[in-house]
Amino acid sequence: MSSSSWLLLSLVAVTAAQSTIEEQAKTFLDKFNHEAEDLFYQSSLASWNYNTNITEENVQNMNNAGDKWSAFLKEQSTLAQMYPLQEIQNLTVKLQLQALQQNGSSVLSEDKSKRLNTILNTMSTIYSTGKVCNPDNPQECLLLEPGLNEIMANSLDYNERLWAWESWRSEVGKQLRPLYEEYVVLKNEMARANHYEDYGDYWRGDYEVNGVDGYDYSRGQLIEDVEHTFEEIKPLYEHLHAYVRAKLMNAYPSYISPIGCLPAHLLGDMWGRFWTNLYSLTVPFGQKPNIDVTDAMVDQAWDAQRIFKEAEKFFVSVGLPNMTQGFWENSMLTDPGNVQKAVCHPTAWDLGKGDFRILMCTKVTMDDFLTAHHEMGHIQYDMAYAAQPFLLRNGANEGFHEAVGEIMSLSAATPKHLKSIGLLSPDFQEDNETEINFLLKQALTIVGTLPFTYMLEKWRWMVFKGEIPKDQWMKKWWEMKREIVGVVEPVPHDETYCDPASLFHVSNDYSF
């Protein structure tokens, strides 16, 4: 037999072997998808029940369902290793196997995995149920939502704001400190077992692309791009910072340095994350009609249902689908009040099986009107990829998912749209002054938050990498806050605090 014939037969044999492996992989994935749908849905439903009704029974049910899901994933991840990716030609099959071969938290021992889940659930519970009591009246206690958040959004009393700011960190942050220390250790162990340098590197892996249509993007490039983007917006932020400082000097004349940092408790919310609520103090042309339409919403008797129905109309107007019937029947759109304790931070849920929901303790404000559009943007994205195989139902990356939500809320905030839905009067006219007011309001929300987020994530990356010793977490946190964000702590904090974890995203294990 000629050498060319042998070569042809060899190629046929290799192709047949690849085809056999690929067919086996497809069969394996079909079985996995069928089983995963049910187990993931049960786990998601148990998590939803806990988040909307925080009880010991629900946390136990959530843990049990989560353990079943984790055990299943660990088993299936091991089985998926049997299919070598280099022998799979079908890109859809390869991407699913690649996702499943990534072990995630299931790489930890059973004891450590359970401990990590306990830590995460405990931190979430402390954050959502933590109360601050009035020292003069111990029976008068406030949760973060709505009590403390209400103070931080609306109060102009310097000392009341300081009390709310400090009490939240003292009551909740200190409880979270030992848990967060354990969390860092276990998450790093999980990341390294998955061949990442640390948990920050694991997060950045979400943005990594290897040879898809000839395109590559590394975790290191992400760090470079983040640094570059921050340097680009820094001059604009510094101008905004100086303008806000001048306006705060008028409101709090004896508390603000004309050349120094801004006190952290005066920036519009509990964390200084969004400066939106400073608009009334900083509006350049106050004689113009108010483009913050909160009062109009209240006057027109809007409620949470109306807010979300208007958001749905907005999405339908640009060619996107209505929310499902189940969305309206199962979402929690208002604070249950004293009936039950719930996690009030707005979140969009894709539970699986076409079950999409939003959890939000909606208030009738323009801020929540825009947040509703943001969260519904997440749901629209979830619905758009719902037909994909189970392992591919995700956003391109976390940042893109947020961008989908944010672009919709930005569009909904324009005076033209607000006028079209009757929240600005029919005779409202846009001119240079109203446009400047609008742009300032947008800058308070968007530009003001960028250094906050950059600095927070930089601190977390450094902590996970071990570049900040545990006994210097708070020292470095406030050094970076002053240097990068231009914000100063109103009272000193020692290493018993854990100020970063006083933010939902940190205590609940979300990256930005």
Rank of each mutant, 00 (worst) to 15 (best):
S19V: 14
S19I: 14
S19M: 06
S19A: 10
T20P: 06
T20E: 08
T20C: 05
T20F: 02
I21D: 04
I21Q: 04
I21K: 02
I21A: 03
I21N: 04
I21P: 05
I21G: 10
I21M: 01
I21S: 04
E22A: 03
E22C: 05
E23C: 14
E23T: 14
E23F: 15
E23G: 14
E23N: 14
Q24M: 03
Q24G: 01
Q24A: 01
Q24K: 02
A25Q: 00
A25N: 00
A25C: 05
A25W: 00
A25R: 01
A25V: 15
K26E: 13
K26M: 11
K26I: 15
T27K: 15
T27W: 15
T27M: 15
T27N: 08
T27H: 15
F28P: 02
F28T: 01
F28E: 00
F28Y: 14
F28M: 03
L29H: 01
L29Y: 05
L29M: 03
L29C: 00
D30C: 01
D30M: 06
D30F: 00
D30N: 03
D30T: 13
D30R: 02
D30L: 04
K31S: 01
K31I: 02
K31E: 02
K31Y: 15
K31A: 01
K31G: 01
K31F: 14
N33T: 11
N33W: 01
H34T: 07
H34F: 00
E35N: 06
E35M: 14
E35H: 04
E37I: 00
E37K: 03
E37V: 02
E37Y: 01
D38Q: 02
D38R: 00
L39A: 14
L39Y: 12
L39R: 15
L39P: 11
F40K: 15
F40E: 14
F40L: 13
F40A: 14
Y41C: 02
Y41N: 02
Y41A: 01
Y41Q: 04
Y41K: 00
Q42S: 04
Q42T: 13
L45T: 05
L45V: 03
L45I: 12
A46E: 03
A46Y: 06
A46T: 05
W48I: 00
W48H: 00
W48C: 01
W48L: 00
W48E: 00
N49I: 05
N49S: 10
N49G: 06
Y50S: 03
Y50F: 06
Y50T: 03
Y50D: 03
Y50W: 11
Y50V: 03
Y50A: 06
Y50M: 05
N51G: 04
N51F: 06
N51K: 13
N51P: 01
N51Y: 08
N51Q: 05
N51A: 10
N51D: 06
I54A: 07
E56S: 08
E56L: 10
E56K: 13
E57Y: 05
E57M: 04
V59G: 11
V59Q: 10
V59T: 12
V59Y: 13
V59M: 13
Q60D: 10
Q60P: 03
Q60T: 03
Q60F: 11
Q60A: 12
N61S: 13
N61V: 14
N61W: 06
M62F: 06
M62Y: 05
N63H: 07
N63M: 13
N63F: 10
N63A: 12
N64S: 11
N64G: 10
N64T: 14
A65I: 13
A65N: 05
A65K: 10
A65Q: 09
A65Y: 10
D67V: 09
K68I: 06
K68G: 05
K68T: 06
W69D: 04
W69E: 04
W69Y: 05
W69T: 15
W69S: 13
W69K: 15
A71Y: 12
A71F: 09
A71D: 09
A71T: 13
F72N: 06
F72G: 02
F72S: 04
F72D: 02
F72P: 00
L73P: 00
L73G: 06
K74Y: 07
K74D: 06
K74F: 08
K74V: 09
K74I: 06
E75F: 13
E75P: 12
E75L: 14
Q76L: 13
Q76S: 13
Q76R: 15
Q76W: 08
L79C: 00
L79Y: 15
M82D: 04
M82V: 02
M82K: 07
Y83F: 05
Y83A: 07
Y83E: 00
Y83L: 13
P84T: 07
P84E: 07
P84H: 04
P84W: 06
P84F: 04
P84S: 09
Q89G: 14
Q89I: 15
N90D: 15
N90K: 15
N90E: 15
L91K: 12
L91Q: 09
T92A: 15
T92V: 15
V93A: 05
V93D: 03
V93G: 01
V93M: 04
L95E: 12
L95K: 13
Q96K: 04
Q96R: 04
Q96D: 02
Q96F: 00
Q96M: 05
Q98K: 10
Q98M: 14
Q102W: 13
Q102R: 06
